[in-house]
Design a protein around this nucleic acid. Structure first.
Length: 336
DNA sequence: GTTCCACTGGAAGACTAGGTTT
DNA sequence: AAACCTAGTCTTCCAGTGGAAC
């Protein structure tokens, strides 16, 4: 039933992008000067998760490379490389410039100098989830190097500009913006149809089933595609040559669970204990949380550290945070 | 309206791990 | 071997916030 598993991965870049013509044209237009060896403006791409930001950017990058031999394209995920050092290192790594840069004890000045020395072809530098960078001064440095064309991807523009320094804000204010909106139900069905056509056997899934998946995904293509994948796997396992309505229903919680399980595995012992406390309580105030956490370990971290842990877990969607001062509560997402 | 105070999150610095230099 | 780097983690300190109690 599965003809090409790659197509069902959420990071797959299709040959044609569905319902994002305007965004594709806009982004290509901004990067166009690179084909003549001219520098291109910085682009800020914003929109909720699963709206095709990363996909469109990669798509445009691949097409640009097909058209022009002399353009390099590089993608860096700032969630995974969230410090100044790791992000700069990742950029250098993509340029094969890291051989003599050692994993540690390399001052940031040297990393910057090395970036500045770059004299290869113009390079499109995509910084995905750029709002996750904890030190945004790297943007300032990269922005001032004309050999790099920056594409900054963030969920919300306001958050990015809120953290960015004033001098950087004024420089970026004039840069191009591309905003992505959530997919409508019909658009999402079209996305799924395209993936099913090239990834699955013919007639493996019907229109009603795709619509059900699209509906459950609530405008998020990433969720939709991973539900489709797990439905296809499930059908395969059960020896079914069609994705039935029952298989779809069973696959919907699968996708959520898989992400959840993966995130839990990344936690440290202390974070795990905090997660357990919140899970047991369902909902808990900060004071009580810390008290119970302290009772369960004999080497408790400082309260400030616990607050950092909680932020991190909230980021992984493992817990929810509500309220900003005295009304703050931590909550387990499946309850309350 | 005023005061109280539980809580937040930024900043600065100590500490640790892992490397290089002398 | 000792002295000296750096990144990353954690702690300490504290101004600020806004809900709750008066």
């Amino acid at each position: 039933m599965i003809r090409d598993a790659r197509v069902l991965r959420t990071d797959f870049v299709p040959r044609e992008v569905e319902h994002r013509d305007h965004e594709v044209t806009h982004l290509s237009g901004v990067l166009r000067p690179l084909t003549d060896g001219e520098p291109a403006d910085t682009v800020i791409v914003t929109g909720p998760t699963g709206t095709g930001k990363t996909c469109v950017t990669r798509f445009v990058g691949e097409r640009l490379r097909e058209e022009t031999l002399d353009v390099a394209f590089q993608y860096v995920n700032c969630w995974r490389h969230y410090t100044f050092f790791r992000c700069a290192y990742a950029v250098l790594d993509g340029m094969n410039e890291t051989m003599d840069v050692h994993r540690q004890s390399t001052p940031r000045d040297e990393l910057l100098a090395r970036l500045e020395e770059y004299d290869g072809p113009p390079r499109v530098l995509v910084l995905d989830e750029v709002d996750q960078l904890e030190d945004l001064s790297l943007l300032y440095d990269l922005h001032s190097m004309p050999r790099f064309a920056l594409v900054l991807i963030a969920n919300r523009e306001a958050e990015l500009f809120g953290r960015i320094g004033e001098r950087m804000t004024s420089r970026l204010r004039g840069s191009e913006r591309i905003r992505f909106e959530k997919y409508t139900l019909d658009q999402l069905v079209a996305v799924l149809e395209a993936r099913a056509r090239s990834g699955l056997a013919e007639d493996a899934v019907g229109a009603a089933e795709l619509e059900r998946i699209a509906d459950a995904a609530a405008g998020d293509a990433r969720v939709a595609i991973s539900v489709l994948r797990s439905a296809a796997r499930r059908a395969d396992r059960e020896g079914n040559d069609r994705i039935t309505a029952e298989v779809v229903e069973a696959a919907i919680p699968d996708a959520r669970e898989a992400v959840h399980r993966e995130n839990l595995e990344n936690l440290t012992r202390h974070q795990e204990i905090l997660y357990d406390v919140v899970e047991d309580a369902g909902e808990i105030a900060p004071g009580a949380l810390y008290e119970r956490y302290e009772g369960r370990v004999d080497d408790a971290k400082a309260d400030r550290t616990v607050r950092n842990y909680m932020q991190k877990m909230a980021h992984y969607d493992l817990i929810e945070i509500e309220g900003s001062t005295r009304d703050r509560v931590y909550r387990h997402p499946d309850r309350g």
